[in-house]
Amino acid sequence: MADIDSRMAEIGWLDRLASRDTPLHRIDPRAKLLTTLAFIVAVLSYGKYQLAPLMPLAIYPAVLIALGDVPLKFIARKLLIVSPFAIFVGLFNPLLDRQTMLTVGPLEISGGWVSYASILMRFVLTVSATLALVAGTGIHNVCRGLERLGVPSVFTVQVLLLYRYLFVLVNEGARMSRARALRSAGSRGMGLRVLGAMLGSLLLRTLDRAQRVHAAMCCRGFDGHVRTIEALRLRARDAAFLVGWLGVLALLRAFDLAGLLGAIATGGGR
């Protein structure tokens, strides 16, 4: 139970970050969304053994984090929570792909390890950029931006409501779980059968709640679109942010900055 509560506190943290006012917050959500999308595409466009050329791309999440004054602790904890996914995805690479690619002194590094490192690198880059984006924009504004970019409102309204009712759902689930724990004398209730029944009842409660929320929305004139009055305006600053980053990403993609630096360094050492 304490675990559920602390997870919810983490989401509250995201809310507090999103409600601040930093240079990152002041940039139009659409500009941030598009650059982040371009960034993710750039990261994913490298070949599976290209590890070094990825590294300079870290400048994008780094700048977002700095502009938005996002605590590194926040990014690190969220990365840890989702990391098992990336860790397991590439787990078999080193076992399947044993061809030696690099030799560092006596150490022979196989292609599998390089591609595994590349997967982890991509994971850290894309997820930290996305986290910084959300922390510096807020779910509400991300959804508004998405809608203005042409994402169907069915989708954005879902995300908004999902985020809003996450708290209510977790509370309801926590209450049921507490009620079971209090009457199951230290054991795990009655195992899966009871858990199944609990989940079923949670689903029914959720459906009931959804109907009531929908009625409340209809009473206030809801017609499928969530509107806002603060119009989004793309100013010169936002355009500069977008164009500047697209340029930087294109340059990094076209020229292997890490390779160039390496060549200069080793050339200078000769």
Binding site: L160, L161, Y165, R209, A216, M217, V226
Partner: peptide, 10 residues
């Protein structure tokens, strides 16, 4: 239930 009525982010 105010939770039914208040569905927006702020």
């Amino acid at each position: 239930d105010p939770d039914d009525q208040l569905f927006m982010p702020t």
